[in-house]
């Protein structure tokens, strides 16, 4: 009885599915986005290797310079505290000086909104007070906060790098990019609101590195990977120790297991 009911229910489900499967499908509209979209190419970062890769401190500092002088005009970095900049090689005094350049909202003695100088314990702030202000200033497009951009896009740092160098002057003939948007093969909709942000020699690197667009894109991509995953090096270091330890432990566990079972295995073959 159970089986008959089951078979009946199964037959109904299968019929409903097969009825759906035999329905004609709408003609596939050729998707131009799929045609022109390009996945980010690997840019070759010092931290690419998932086990031993490390950040390049000089590159992170250059990337910070690019963020500060170019990106921070529109993009916030709100989840990053100034104090953590010591991790990428800035001294405590340098961090203090960087923090001081930012005005942090505060209240005065009368409770009126005012600003105060940033402290190392503060997070990055600005450039806009809130998302609505950011949209209003950017033609209704919201420049995303960059703190987690290295982890919130497929491809991570490679994506950031590819996007920054992925602008094409003229889109293909069958693709229209509306006024105020820019054609970029690495952006999910191909039309991005951000104008090409980098020009050659836009920043003057303290360490004398030549500031090509590719170099700046790579440096800022590395920096934004660090802001997204500041514990990356600690994580990998811990991981190497943990995995080595566990391999040894597992080896010992195997030897124990083999010893324990020796008598049983021996008995089996004694026939």
């Amino acid at each position: 009885m159970v089986k008959l009911i089951a078979a009946a229910i199964g037959a109904i489900f299968c019929a409903a599915l097969l009825w759906g499967a035999v329905q004609p499908r709408d003609a596939v509209v050729p998707d131009l986005v799929k045609k022109y979209y390009q996945h980010a190419e690997p840019a070759g970062f010092s931290f690419d290797n998932p086990i031993v890769g490390k950040f390049d401190r000089a590159q992170l500092q250059r990337g910070f310079q690019v963020y500060k002088e170019v990106c921070s005009g529109c993009h916030s970095l709100n989840r990053v505290a100034f104090r953590t900049l010591t991790d990428i090689g800035f001294s405590a005094a340098e961090v203090k000086a960087i923090a001081k350049q930012y005005d942090i909202p505060s209240l005065d003695a009368a409770g009126e909104p005012t600003t105060r100088k940033g402290l190392p314990s503060d997070n990055f702030y600005g450039p806009y007070a809130n998302d609505d202000a950011a949209r209003a200033a950017n033609n209704n497009a919201l420049p995303p906060d960059l703190s987690l951009i290295g982890k919130s896009r497929e491809g991570g740092a490679n994506y950031v790098h590819a996007l920054l160098i992925g602008y094409k002057e003229t889109p293909p003939k069958d693709w229209t990019t509306p006024d105020g948007l820019y054609f970029n093969v690495h952006f999910h909709s191909l039309n991005i609101a951000m104008p090409p942000p980098l020009n050659p020699d836009q920043v003057t690197y303290v360490d004398g590195t030549k500031a090509t667009v590719d170099q700046m894109a790579k440096d800022v991509a590395a920096f934004l990977m660090w802001t997204a995953e500041p514990k990356l090096e600690e994580r990998r270091r811990t991981g190497v120790g943990a995995v080595i330890f566990l391999i040894i432990l597992t080896g010992l566990a195997y030897l124990s297991y083999a010893r324990v079972w020796q008598s049983v295995k021996a008995k089996k073959t004694q026939v």
């Binding site: 994580r235 991981g239 566990l246 597992t250 566990a253 195997y254 297991y257 324990v260 079972w261």
Partner: peptide
């Protein structure tokens, strides 16, 4: 015990090794 405790402990070692590798090297 000790036959399957030993076998499970060995299995646990293999499992934790793979688990640790993913947690520390490919967490996302």
């Amino acid at each position: 015990h000790p036959y399957y405790t030993a076998k499970d402990f060995f299995g646990l070692g293999v499992y934790l090794t793979i688990f640790a590798a993913v947690v520390f090297f490919w967490p996302n």
